[in-house]
Simulated assay, not measured.
Amino acid sequence: MRYARQVLLDGWDVSAQVRLKASTAIIVGAGGLGCPASETLARAGVGHIHLIDDDTIEMSNLQRQTLFTASNVGQNKAETASEVLNQINPLIEVSYSMQRLDAQSMDDLSDLIAQKRHESLVPHSADHSTILLLDCTDNFAIRQLLNEISVVERLPLLSASAIAMTGQLALYEPYKNTGCYYCVFGEILTNKSVEQNCANSGVLASTTTVMGNMQANLALQYLGLGHNPLSGQLLNWDGKHMSQHNLRFKRDYSCKVCAGQIG
C-alpha cells in the first residue's frame, strides 16, 4: 500500500519497485540538495540510502535544508538526516558516515561499494547498476573525487548543482563511453577562483528543492527502470525565467580521468 501510487504508473510495476528495494543510493552531501533528494528516494522505497557529510547544521541552513529544524542546530547533518529518513520510511535501511570525502576516505567509500555489490540480490551489469552515486555537494574538489570513483568503480554518477536561481543536472555513465564529469567541466574543477557556493553567492530556497527533486526523479528512473533520460546531456534550469534547456556532450578521449580507465 505504501508504494501503490507508483505501481499504478504506466511503465512502472512491481518489478520496478522490487529493483528500487534492491538498490543503494550513496549520497555525498546532506544539505540543500541532499535533503530533498534523500527524502524523495526514501519515500519512494530505495532499499538502502547512505549519507556522507561531516558538516554540522547551522541556523542559515534552515532556509533550504528541508530535513532540519531549529532544534537540530549544532548536530551533524548526515546523522540527523538519517534519523529523520528512518522515521519517514522504516521499511528501508538508512546509514551514514560523519566524514568529509577526501583522498584518505576514498578507501572507505570503495569498501562500502564492494559491500553493497556483494549483498545485492540483483546483479550489477554493464547496462544497469544497482548502486548510484549522488553528488549533492557544492565543492569542486569533492566532485573530482566522486568522478574518479565513478570511473574506477564503473558506477553511474548523478550530479546536481544549485546556485542563486539556477541549477544543473547530469547522469554520467563513463563506462558506456559517453563521457565523465571531467570530460564536460575539465580544468574548471581545479580553478578555485570560479567556485561558487551558497555561502558566497546565495541561493533561493526553492532552487535546491527543485534541483534535489529533479535529481531524485532521475535516480528513480535509473534505479527502477534502468533508464537515463539525460544520457549524454547536461540539463540547465533557470528558475528566474522558468526555462530549461539541455546541452549535449561527448566523451573527451584525451580526458585525464577516464581516458586511461575506460576502453
Rank of each mutant, 00 (worst) to 15 (best):
N147H: 06
L20G: 02
L189E: 13
Q17R: 09
R19S: 08
Q87N: 15
P229Q: 14
L171E: 04
L235Y: 10
C198G: 07
S231E: 15
S206I: 10
S159L: 02
Q215S: 03
N89M: 03
V7T: 11
G32F: 00
I131G: 01
R248C: 12
L171H: 03
N228T: 07
S201H: 10
D238V: 10
H50P: 07
A114S: 14
H48S: 06
K240A: 14
L109R: 05
L109W: 06
Q215F: 02
E79F: 09
S15I: 10
G29F: 03
G232K: 07
M106E: 14
N200Q: 12
Q168A: 07
D54N: 15
E195M: 11
I88E: 04
L91H: 13
L146H: 03
T80C: 05
I57F: 02
D238S: 12
D54Q: 14
Q215H: 09
I142F: 06
L223S: 01
Q261S: 14
R5T: 12
T40G: 07
Q65V: 04
S97G: 08
E187C: 09
L133T: 00
Y172C: 01
L189V: 10
T137V: 07
K77D: 06
V7N: 10
G212S: 04
D238C: 12
L230F: 11
R64G: 00
A164E: 14
A259N: 12
L8V: 09
A114I: 09
G212I: 00
R143E: 03
R19D: 09
Q75K: 15
D102R: 15
V257R: 02
T209S: 05
L33C: 00
Y222A: 01
S82G: 14
Q144I: 11
Q261L: 13
E153T: 10
L234E: 06
A42M: 02
L155P: 01
G11M: 10
L101M: 12
A219W: 01
Q63F: 09
N213H: 06
L51Q: 01
R100S: 14
K256R: 12
L62S: 09
Q99G: 13
E187A: 13
V184R: 05
Y222F: 08
G239K: 06
D108A: 13
G34Q: 02
N89R: 04
N61H: 07
I92H: 02
V184T: 12
L225P: 01
G224M: 03
S159W: 01
L158F: 03
L85G: 00
I57S: 00
T66V: 12
Q168H: 11
I149R: 08
H241T: 15
E119D: 13
I113A: 06
S161L: 08
I262G: 05
Y172A: 01
Y3T: 14
Y3E: 14
S254Q: 12
A216H: 01
K240M: 15
A30D: 04
Q215R: 07
I49F: 02
G226Y: 06
I57R: 00
L121R: 10
A70T: 15
S95P: 08
H48F: 08
Q63N: 12
